[in-house]
């Protein structure tokens, strides 16, 4: 007989249960971090942040050695709500990040494969990347004020993943059993993580713009709205994360095409997933163009970026559930 019946692929049950326990731990940890960030946003004081790390150049003036520096267009003043709890929140986020990482590693060990072969695993990995991107931003650009705005979607996604997408650790279908999964899906996950931070910053930007518009009209603004970081800063952060994510997304699409060429016999077949990856890519390209187009920077460009993010989300949730295609990981 030609059909060889395989032995049960080994799933390490011990590892699998550690991994499942870590899901709860990371969600709780992220929730605590979110609470602390929210406290910082609400009760902190607005303080100036220097996004560019300028050594010795605060503003125009002479330093002790007699060097006179003159900045014609110094960075616009940027500020955000700050509170001592913010540092604690950052620490808790790092802890959550480690638990998240541990969850993914143990799941990979349990199933003995790359741990992103189904929707649940994909979402958890995207959250890891968003948090990583946020931590990078918090340290490199002092963008800690994004904490609340990044952790809200992260927790939402993790909740959805744990409640509706959860599947036990196990092997994947043969089409997903390839080293291209490491390349293509990793690129998609990393890009999605960065796009998510960009999207969080973009929404904050729109809120901050409203606050600033109200202030400009002479109205007083109270509550959290009053403590939002300046819109200029948020716009820049949002743009930077798109700049980071866009080439990754481009690369991910190309890697996917190469994989499809190997697995399905064509590198591009307008499968719904491919269509929506393409749409997402085009919309983010439009965003980058809009940023370079006079009269489109600011709100209009930001809205385009958010449309791109909506396409990204639709590609994940909408396409997987509404359309049948080769990509649906059931």
């Amino acid at each position: 007989m030609n059909t060889v019946l395989a032995a049960e692929p080994a799933v390490d049950e011990g590892m699998a249960s550690v991994s499942d326990a870590l899901i709860i731990a990371m969600i709780v940890t992220y929730a605590i971090a979110l609470f602390l960030f929210a406290v910082e946003a609400a009760y902190g004081r607005r303080k100036a942040i220097k996004a560019e790390r300028l050594v010795g150049v605060g503003a125009s003036g002479a330093d002790e050695d007699g060097m006179e520096v003159n900045l014609r267009a110094p960075d616009p003043e940027t500020s955000a709500s700050q509170h001592i709890l913010g540092n604690v929140a950052l620490g808790v986020t790092v802890l959550g990040f480690l638990l998240n990482l541990g969850q993914i590693v143990t799941r990979g060990l349990a199933a003995d494969r790359w741990p992103w072969g189904n929707m649940f695993e994909f979402v958890v990995a995207v959250c890891l990347c968003s948090v990583a991107a946020f931590l990078f931003g918090a340290i490199r650009y002092k963008a800690r004020y994004l904490g609340t705005f990044v952790l809200v979607p992260v927790l939402l996604l993790l909740g959805i993943a744990a409640k509706w997408l959860y599947s036990e650790a196990g092997p994947v279908i043969p089409a997903l059993d390839s080293y291209w999964i490491a390349i293509h899906v990793s690129a998609a996950i990393l890009a999605t993580g960065a796009f998510m931070v960009s999207g969080a910053a973009a929404i904050t930007y729109l809120l901050a713009q409203r606050t600033e518009a109200k202030r400009a009209r002479g109205e007083t603004v109270t509550g959290i709205a009053a403590k939002l970081p300046s819109s200029e800063l948020l716009d820049r952060v949002s743009h930077r994360f798109v700049v980071l994510a866009f080439p990754l997304w481009t690369f991910g699409i190309i890697a996917g095409a190469i994989w499809a060429d190997e697995a399905w016999g064509r590198f591009w077949g307008w499968d719904p997933k491919e269509v929506w990856s393409f749409i997402t890519w085009v919309v983010y390209a439009a965003y980058l163009h809009a940023r370079a187009t006079a009269g489109w920077r600011g709100t209009k460009a930001t809205v385009i970026g958010l449309v791109g993010f909506a396409c990204l989300l639709f590609n994940f949730f909408g396409v997987n559930y509404l359309f049948s295609g080769l990509h649906s990981y059931a």
Binding site: W270, P272, V275, W276, F278, I279, V282, V283, A285, A286, H289, A290, A292, T293, A294, G295, W296, C311, V319, F323
Partner: peptide, 25 residues
């Protein structure tokens, strides 16, 4: 020149994205 051409490019990029949608539905 830049303004007009970039705006055209933007609009065409949008049309490219919107036009792709029916093909997935």
């Amino acid at each position: 020149r830049i303004l007009t051409s970039m705006r055209t490019a933007l609009i065409l990029l949008f049309l490219l994205a919107i036009g792709a949608i029916p093909g997935s539905v």
